[in-house]
Design a protein around this nucleic acid. Structure first.
Length: 395
RNA sequence: GCGCCGGUCGGAUAGCGGCUAUUCCAGUGGACUGUAAAUCCACGGCCCAACGGGCAUCGCAGGUUCGAGUCCUGCCCGGCGCA
């Protein structure tokens, strides 16, 4: 008896997209769905009760972080992730593969694309970067330095799975190597082979039967590698699939279509780390069922408010005396009670409530957009909805 | 009137003889996609043959000096103290 059960309710005509439901030991998720990220067993600044009220169905936590703090054993003793954090709903953990990739990239000084290009260059020239000081990858796993206390640790597929079994989320991921999509073909191929080997080892290492294991498709922006990866990973006995790789906007949609055209249709597909609204429309259309992303929560804390009319920066002076809701017509807790002027004030004063309200609003917004997309699939109006929404959102 | 202290980018500051005058706040613009992010970056006087360069600038005016925001003199303004 598998840990999860996935059913498709309706497909988008002429596309790979579908609306469905995913049963997990901790409850059901209506898909497609946006999964908020709670790295350290907490969605930053928001309580589980608030998460539920804003419509979140599932939470993703982070293996690397929880392993370092408070320790996966502690989470296990607490009764597992869900019980520990007081979230009475489905959960998932990523495998730590992404941290191996992202650790030490420095803080948002440049755009993603720039970072990814730099990463590829560093990889090729074997240049020492902040990143390589913290992480060393070999064929068996990754050795890394804790960002908290500088101690040395090692992740292998076996170790990642063991830790994820301790943490006890409903869905766990195979340990993979995430790279810059800009790696040259031969380097990417070598990396992909490693990811594939690790996928097999992750599967073999799995003991618990009440958790679902998702394999991760990599391959960067190379169609042949993505295709090979989708066939390889898709052919294995995983309960579902993740599509990974920090994406370059230009080739994301074609790659997703290619991969999902190959992966078994009856299993759920999760797009790792994607959360820009327009990207989710494209992903869903091409058969993605789940997304997780830090974007809405991080943007919220950094003052960017998501609305159907596009984003805006609440810190701008122009909102100082705007006594209208944060987003006109929004049904979230923050918009029901407070104005832009007030939220602006909270941000300028660095009052903690400001970060909370912005996070609640942004999560509500993104969760509800995906819910609306799901409904449009059920209604057979996906393409109309997509067109209408993006026209005003992207302006 | 005398004495003391002080006048540096919108505000607050650092600098007290030496190369591109510091930092913070406010302002403007930008970034953020499996979270080392309640964070980070840029701009902020004028001019140009402008992804670089030039000229200014530290209350005002002189002076000393190879060189002055920094020292000296006078003036103006503010604060405090004493008459």
């Amino acid at each position: 008896m598998p840990a999860i059960e996935f059913t498709i309710e309706k497909k988008i005509e002429g596309a790979l997209g579908r609306a469905g439901a995913l049963k997990t030991p901790h409850g059901e998720v209506r898909t497609p769905a946006f999964v908020p990220v709670g790295t350290l067993a907490a969605v930053k600044s928001v309580t589980p009760e608030e998460l539920q009220a804003l419509g979140a169905q599932m939470v993703l936590a982070n293996t690397y972080h929880l392993y370092l703090q408070p320790g996966d054993e502690t989470v296990a003793k607490a009764g597992g992730l869900s019980e520990f954090m007081g979230w009475n709903g489905p959960t998932m953990t990523d495998s730590g593969g992404f941290q191996v990739f992202s650790l030490g990239f420095g803080k948002g000084k440049k755009g993603v694309t720039k970072v990814l290009r730099d990463a590829a260059t560093a990889h090729e020239n074997d240049t020492a970067t902040e990143h390589t000081k913290l992480v060393k990858i070999d064929d068996e796993g990754a050795t890394f330095t804790s960002h908290i206390d500088g101690t040395t640790h090692r992740f292998t597929p076996e170790r990642s799975i063991a830790i994820q079994e301790h943490i006890g989320a409903d869905i766990i991921f195979a340990f993979d190597e995430c790279t810059s999509p800009f790696l040259p073909h031969d380097s990417m191929k070598a990396s992909l082979e490693r990811t594939h080997r690790w996928a097999r080892e992750s599967l073999q290492a799995k003991r618990r039967s009440d958790q679902a294991l998702f394999g991760i498709v990599q391959g960067g922006r190379y169609a042949d590698l993505r295709e090979a990866s989708a066939r390889f990973i898709g052919g294995m006995d995983f309960d579902g699939f993740g599509i990974g790789g920090s994406f370059d906007k230009n080739d994301m949609t074609s790659i997703v279509a290619l991969v999902n055209g190959i992966l078994p249709e009856n299993k759920p597909r999760h797009m790792l780390g994607i959360g820009e609204v327009e990207d989710m429309f494209e992903g869903i259309e091409r058969g993605i069922d789940l997304f997780d992303c830090v974007l809405p929560t991080r943007l919220g804390r950094n003052g960017t408010i998501l609305t159907a009319q596009g984003k805006y920066d609440i810190c701008k002076k122009e909102h100082a005396e705007s006594f209208a809701p944060i987003e006109e017509g929004c049904g979230c807790y923050a918009c029901a009670h407070w104005t832009k002027a007030y939220l602006h004030h909270l941000f300028k004063a660095k009052e903690l409530l400001g970060y909370r309200l912005a996070t609640i609003h942004n999560l509500y917004f993104i969760v509800h957009v995906v819910d609306a997309i799901r409904q449009s699939i059920l209604d057979g109006t996906f393409f109309e909805y997509k067109k209408r929404f993006l026209e005003t959102y992207l302006r």
